[in-house]
Amino acid sequence: MTHLMEALQWVLSAESWAGPGGLGVRTAEHLWYTLLALVLSTAIALPAGLVIGHTGRGRALAVLSTGAARALPTLGIITLAGLAVGIGLKAPMIAFVVLAVPSIIAGAYSGVEAVDRRVVDAARAQGLSPWQVLVTVEVPLGLRLILGGVRLATLQVIATATLAAYVGAGGLGRPLFLGLRNHDYAMMLGASLVVIAVAILVDALFIAALRILRRIPGIH
C-alpha cells in the first residue's frame, strides 16, 4: 500500500506532469497515437467491412481472418515492426493498424448483417440505390455494432500504445518502462494508473455514445 501512496503522490505532483518528458506530454502523445491509428484503420477497415456486410462477398474470408487476427500477439507485431522499419512512430503505428483493422471490419460487417433483411428489401423495393440503402438504412441501423467494433479497436490500440515505448516511441509507456528499468516503483505504478484512467475514460465515452444511440428506435 505504501507503493500505491507513493505512486499517487508521484501522479499528483506538478513536476511529474511538466516538461517535455512529463505526464502531460506523454498523455497527449498516447492519445495522439490512438487517434492517428484509429483514423488510419477506420479509413481502411470501415469501407471494407461495410462492403462485405452489404454484398456478403468475402464474408467467409473476413470471419476467418478477423478470428485469426485475435490470436496475433501484440508484443510480437510491435517488435517485429520495430526491427523491420526502425525506431520511431512508424513501427508502432503499423502494429496498431494491424491490430485495429480486424475489430473494425468485424464490427462493420456484423452491424450491417444485423439489420433486418426485410427492411433492406423494402428499401430496395421503394427504389433506393445500393449506395442509398447502405447509407440511409444499413449504416444507421447497424451503427451500434459498427461503433462497437471501433470501440474494441480503440481499447486495443490504447493498450498496445503502452508497448510503443518498448520500441522507442513515446506515450505513457515511456515513464512506465523507465520506472521498470530503474526500479522506480512510484513512477512505474503511477504511469500504469494514468494509462488505466485514460483507457477507462475513453471507454466511458464510447459507452455514453452507445447509450445515446440506443434511444433511437430500431438501431442495433
Binding site: 426485410r118 427492411v119 428489401d121 423495393a125 427504389g127 438504412v137 428506435p217 438501431i219
Partner: peptide
Amino acid sequence: VQLRRSIGYVMQHSGLMPH
C-alpha cells in the same frame, strides 16, 4: 432504381424503416 421509384410496393411485414 428508377423503375422501382415509379411503382408502389407493399409487403406483408410493413418493411418500414424503424429509425
